[in-house]
Structure formats: structure tokens, C-alpha cells
Computed example of a mutant assay.
Amino acid sequence: MLMCDYIVESIDGDYAHLRRTDVPDEELKLVARALLPFDIVEGSKLHYEMMQYTIID
């Protein structure tokens, strides 16, 4: 099961571009904003586990 952290690099309409913190050279992941917490902004840190994203401080 995949568990990792992401940083929101940019928000483009209904999608957000996420960068993994443990593999910074990996290609950005494009995720629909409907799958992400409502109050994300560029620079938000997210934790992904069990097909859910949560904001971390």
C-alpha cells in the first residue's frame, strides 16, 4: 500500500499538480481537486494513504 507526502506545486482550474517529497525528480502528479481537501493552496503539504489525501502541517 502506497503512503507518501506531496506538495501542491500549482493549481490549474479543477486540477492540482503534486510533487512527491521523497522523490522530487519524479514527474508531477495531476489530481482532480474533487479528490483533494477543499482548502488546499499552492504550497500545501498533503499526506496520501488508503486512497485519501489529508493536509499536514
Score class of each variant (00 low, 15 high):
residue 40 I to Q: 04
residue 37 P to F: 01
residue 9 E to W: 12
residue 18 L to P: 00
residue 44 S to F: 01
residue 16 A to G: 10
residue 55 I to N: 01
residue 4 C to W: 03
residue 52 Q to R: 07
residue 51 M to E: 15
residue 36 L to V: 04
residue 41 V to T: 15
residue 9 E to C: 08
residue 6 Y to P: 00
residue 55 I to H: 00
residue 8 V to M: 07
residue 10 S to R: 15
residue 53 Y to N: 03
residue 29 K to Q: 11
residue 27 E to N: 10
residue 26 E to A: 15
residue 9 E to F: 13
residue 37 P to N: 06
residue 23 V to M: 12
residue 28 L to H: 12
residue 8 V to N: 03
residue 43 G to N: 08
residue 29 K to S: 13
residue 19 R to N: 03
residue 31 V to K: 04
residue 4 C to P: 03
residue 2 L to N: 12
residue 16 A to F: 01
residue 36 L to R: 06
residue 43 G to P: 14
residue 20 R to D: 02
residue 9 E to S: 14
residue 54 T to H: 07
residue 10 S to H: 07
residue 51 M to Y: 08
residue 33 R to D: 02
residue 40 I to T: 05
residue 31 V to G: 07
residue 48 Y to H: 02
residue 38 F to D: 15
residue 43 G to V: 10
residue 17 H to I: 01
residue 21 T to V: 08
residue 9 E to H: 15
residue 23 V to P: 00
residue 20 R to I: 01
residue 14 D to K: 14
residue 50 M to N: 11
residue 48 Y to T: 00
residue 51 M to N: 15
residue 22 D to M: 02
residue 33 R to I: 09
residue 34 A to H: 07
residue 51 M to P: 02
residue 29 K to P: 00
residue 56 I to E: 05
residue 43 G to R: 08
residue 14 D to A: 13
residue 39 D to K: 09
residue 40 I to F: 04
residue 13 G to M: 10
residue 47 H to F: 06
residue 7 I to N: 11
residue 35 L to Q: 11
residue 41 V to K: 15
residue 30 L to C: 12
residue 16 A to N: 04
residue 34 A to M: 13
residue 38 F to W: 09
residue 3 M to V: 11
residue 35 L to E: 12
residue 55 I to K: 05
residue 46 L to W: 02
residue 46 L to Y: 01
residue 45 K to D: 06
residue 39 D to L: 07
residue 34 A to N: 14
residue 19 R to K: 11
residue 18 L to H: 00
residue 17 H to D: 03
residue 37 P to H: 01
residue 45 K to H: 15
residue 21 T to H: 04
residue 20 R to P: 00
residue 47 H to P: 01
residue 7 I to S: 06
residue 20 R to A: 04
residue 8 V to D: 05
residue 13 G to D: 07
residue 55 I to D: 01
residue 41 V to M: 09
residue 40 I to A: 03
residue 54 T to W: 02
residue 24 P to S: 03
residue 10 S to W: 10
residue 1 M to W: 13
residue 54 T to Y: 01
residue 10 S to T: 09
residue 15 Y to T: 08
residue 13 G to A: 11
residue 32 A to R: 10
residue 57 D to S: 12
residue 37 P to E: 03
residue 39 D to M: 09
residue 23 V to I: 14
residue 23 V to Q: 11
residue 55 I to T: 10
residue 38 F to L: 13
residue 34 A to C: 08
residue 20 R to S: 04
residue 51 M to W: 07
residue 15 Y to N: 14
residue 42 E to P: 05
residue 3 M to Y: 09
residue 5 D to K: 09
residue 28 L to M: 09
residue 3 M to H: 12
residue 41 V to Y: 07
residue 20 R to G: 02
residue 16 A to R: 02
residue 30 L to M: 11
residue 7 I to L: 10
residue 41 V to P: 03
residue 52 Q to V: 06
residue 50 M to S: 08
residue 47 H to D: 05
residue 27 E to A: 08
residue 48 Y to I: 00
residue 12 D to A: 09
residue 18 L to S: 00
residue 49 E to T: 02
residue 4 C to E: 09
residue 38 F to E: 15
residue 34 A to R: 12
residue 40 I to S: 05
residue 8 V to R: 03
residue 25 D to H: 11
residue 57 D to C: 10
residue 10 S to A: 15
residue 22 D to S: 11
residue 33 R to W: 04
residue 54 T to K: 09
residue 43 G to D: 13
residue 1 M to F: 11
residue 34 A to I: 08
residue 15 Y to A: 07
residue 12 D to R: 15
residue 21 T to N: 01
